[in-house]
Design a binder for these strands. Sequence first.
RNA 1: CGGGGUGUGGCCCAGUUGGUCUAAGGCGUCUGGUUUGGGACCAGAAGAUCGAGAGUUCGAAUCUCUCCACCCCGACCA
Length: 408
Amino acid sequence: MKQSQLFTKTIKELPKDEASYNAQALIRAGFVDKSAAGVYSFLPLGWKVINKIRNIICEEMEAIDGQEINMPSLAPKENWQATGRWDTLDVLFKTSGSDEKEYALNPTHEEVVTPLAKKFITSYRELPLAVFQIQNKFRNEKRAKSGLLRGREFLMKDLYSFHADQADLDNYYERAIVAYNNIFRRFGLGEKTYLTYASGGSFSKYSHEFQTLTSAGEDIIYVCDDCQMAINKEIIADQNTCPKCGKANLREDKAVEVGNIFKLGTKYSEPFDLKYQDKDGEKKMVIMGCYGLGLSRALGTIVEICHDDKGIIWPEAVAPFKVHLLSLGENEKADKIYNDLQKEGVEVLYDDRDLSAGEKFADADLIGCPYRLVISKKSLENGGLELKRRNEKEVSIIASTEILNKII
RNA sequence: CGGGGUGUGGCCCAGUUGGUCUAAGGCGUCUGGUUUGGGACCAGAAGAUCGAGAGUUCGAAUCUCUCCACCCCGACCA
């Protein structure tokens, strides 16, 4: 992508009314635009990152036999009345058209996926099953805040699993934990993300959250350094002990909930009468689990964790581009390098604009691609191009023939 | 939903004891020129129903009322 043709440009001054770092940086660098409180557009750079995040999630969900589908954002009122949540869920956006038929803008999809599954699940032979989607969710939060961390419309992956019995759900739940750990590790958040006991879970004592440590988070968790688990403050008991290993020296920290998984049991299969027939011909309730992960929240969280005073430092797996190529008055030679890298399949953002060096460096730091390549009169005199990693201070000179070796 | 704060060209803002405000400056944009290794310089230009509505007044960005939006704290957060 030539930066001269990029839809967005960076802005120098901090957006007014944005206190959260993730919103400041993503808006300044042109990844997102805010149109209302908690409502964001993803712009070319931001959408590239979202797609990296999406691909990682899809791979890991398919690895645990999830099948991707896409369910509607609108659900008939009756679905939400069936579970009683039409009247009790205060974040539910309700809407209607000219015919006055009422709909919910889905904040989650149990009310949609359960009747959907009922159309296909009849026998134990079909179980277990898991479907997932990545789609916009709507929650009328009383107060949207913290940039992308708590929005009213946001991107979320939600997977739903269907099982013949509790043991099968338990087994699948453990596989989901592994998949989630893989996802956060691949996002570059592995070291700071803890599996955390939380409230919820209709069939189990706890649900589990994946909490990433950051001062931008709005949850308080207690980390057990012995078993690398954590407990959400909302459920912590007075004795302050780890429910897993029993140790008592827990460390308090702030964190953001990037994922949450639940054993639903029959909470939703009952109201929708989702049953299967077992080997003996007996009809039994399907046991369900659900597994959420906010993509837009993950994007914001990565920015909160991965930045310095100059801008974002994208982990390579989710970077919008691998290489930021800056031409300082050497566009002819830079064009060739850009074309060569493109042919090799390297994702390059090429700053071909007629701007001062300082401005280009500042933009490169703000946007935060993992590798910065500079070609200038000076670099050519030194023998080639300058290569610098965004997360390192050192600059090295490499010949143009070496580029691929150095960055792949 | 309670409390606090803020709304002035695309962005950041000055001005707010009513009166050359016919709204200043910076960034950005456009034109021409000089520059070119950490957000350059000179000259010129375009761009504003001062959040919205109502009111007070000879006169309102400035005062009054109502409403709206955004941010922060709290409550809430399957």
